[in-house]
Computed example of a mutant assay.
Amino acid sequence: MASATADSGTQTPTQLAEQPLLGSAQTPYTFPVHKLRRRQLEPGKTPLVLVACGSFSPITYLHLRMFEMASDFVRFNTDFEVCAGYLSPVSDAYKKVGLAPGHHRVNMCSRAVEHSPWLMVDPYETVNCDENGQPQYVPTAKVLRHFDHEINTVLGGIEGTDGQMKKARIALLAGADLVMSMGEPGLWAPQDLDTILGQYGAFIIERSGTDIDEALASLRQYEHNIWVISQVIQNDISSTKVRLFLKKDLSVRYLIPDPVVEYIEQHHLFQEPKPNSSRGQTPDSTPGPSNSKVAKS
C-alpha cells in the first residue's frame, strides 16, 4: 500500500447541480493561485497539489501541521513534488453543531496561513449557492474535480523543469477518521469513492487510537492511491475541543494561531449566548454558531 488529522469533515455525498452559482455581486469568486508554484524545481517528479476539505471551525495547529507532515513525507517517500496546499472549508449547507458561518471560517483560515509560502484557502465550497442564493453542499469528489479543472484545464498545469507543461496530481489530505468513514458500507457513494480514491488519491495522517488498517482493508482496490503518514509527535487538538474551551471562557492560545484567536475574540465566535439583563435575550452582537440556524465541527 502507498504509505500518511484534521477536522476532515466526513461528508456523505449528495446530488449537486452541475453548474453551481458562485459568489455574488458583493463577493465574486476567484480561484486563488498566488502561492501556487507554477514551475517545478525537481526534474522527473510529478507536480502535486494537496487539498484538505473540512469544517475548520476553527482551524487549529493540527490542520496546519498535517500539511507540513505530508510535505515531508512526499519529499522523502514519493516521486511527487508539492506545488501547493489548499484548505477548502465546507459549505454552510453542511449542517453540523459548531459550524461557524462560512465567511468567518474562510477568514480564520486565511489569517492562519497568511505567512505560509505555500498554503492557501479556497472559498469555493462556502460560496456555492442554488438558484435562490442559498448555500449548497459540495461533495468532496466535486471539490477535487474543481481543483483539477482550475489547475490543469484553466491554468494548463504546471511547467516542468524542461519547460513542458505537466498535469498536476490533485490529492486529498485528510485524517484517519475520514478514511475510516470511507470504509463503512453505505456511507459514501461508490462513484464518489472511485473519484476520490481511484482517480485522485489521498494522503492520510494516522492518529493514535484509530484502527486504520481495518478501514484500509475494505478499500484494498484503492491501495495504490492511498499514502499513510505516521504522526510521529502525537497531536490531538481538535476544533471540537477548542470550541469547548471557548464556551467555558478558557484560553485557547497556543492551540490555534494567534491571529485566529484575535479574530474569534473580535467577532465573538463560539461563545455561549449570554442573557440580556433587562430583556432576558441574547445581545445584538455577531452570533456564534450556537445561535446560528446553520451549525458543524
Rank of each mutant, 00 (worst) to 15 (best):
Y61K: 11
D130N: 15
L244E: 13
L87A: 01
P101T: 02
L119H: 04
P287E: 05
H146T: 03
Q191Y: 13
S230A: 13
R38Q: 14
T240P: 03
D92C: 09
F76Q: 12
D148L: 03
R111P: 00
M165D: 03
Y200P: 05
S91H: 05
G156M: 02
P47Y: 10
R243I: 02
L50V: 01
D258M: 08
V138G: 00
T12L: 06
V261K: 01
G288N: 06
I170K: 08
R169T: 05
R253L: 12
Q136C: 11
N276K: 08
G98T: 04
S230D: 10
D79T: 15
K95L: 13
L87E: 00
Y29T: 11
V232I: 13
I237A: 08
M120Q: 15
A17L: 08
S218R: 14
K166C: 11
P190G: 05
V33G: 05
N152W: 13
Y86G: 07
D7L: 00
A295Q: 13
E131R: 12
Y263M: 09
G157S: 11
A217D: 11
M69R: 14
F56H: 05
S116V: 03
N77L: 02
S278C: 06
E18A: 15
C83N: 06
S285H: 15
V90R: 01
G157L: 12
D148P: 05
T12M: 07
K96F: 11
S238R: 04
L219T: 09
N276L: 13
P32E: 11
S71V: 09
D192Q: 05
F203C: 05
S24Y: 05
Y254K: 10
T78E: 07
G54A: 03
P32I: 10
W188M: 15
P20H: 09
P257Q: 06
I237E: 08
P259T: 08
M69D: 13
V294Q: 14
C109A: 15
A4K: 11
A168E: 00
E131H: 07
H267Q: 10
L99G: 14
H146S: 03
A215D: 03
A6H: 10
Q221M: 12
S208R: 12
L48A: 06
T46R: 15
S55F: 10
G44D: 08
M1C: 10
L193R: 12
N235C: 13
V127W: 00
P190H: 08
G102Q: 00
A17G: 06
M66I: 13
K167Q: 14
E206R: 14
F203E: 02
T126L: 09
V49N: 14
R75Y: 02
V179P: 00
H34V: 03
T60E: 03
S71W: 12
M182E: 01
S251W: 01
E159A: 07
T27H: 15
A93W: 06
L216Q: 09
A52I: 00
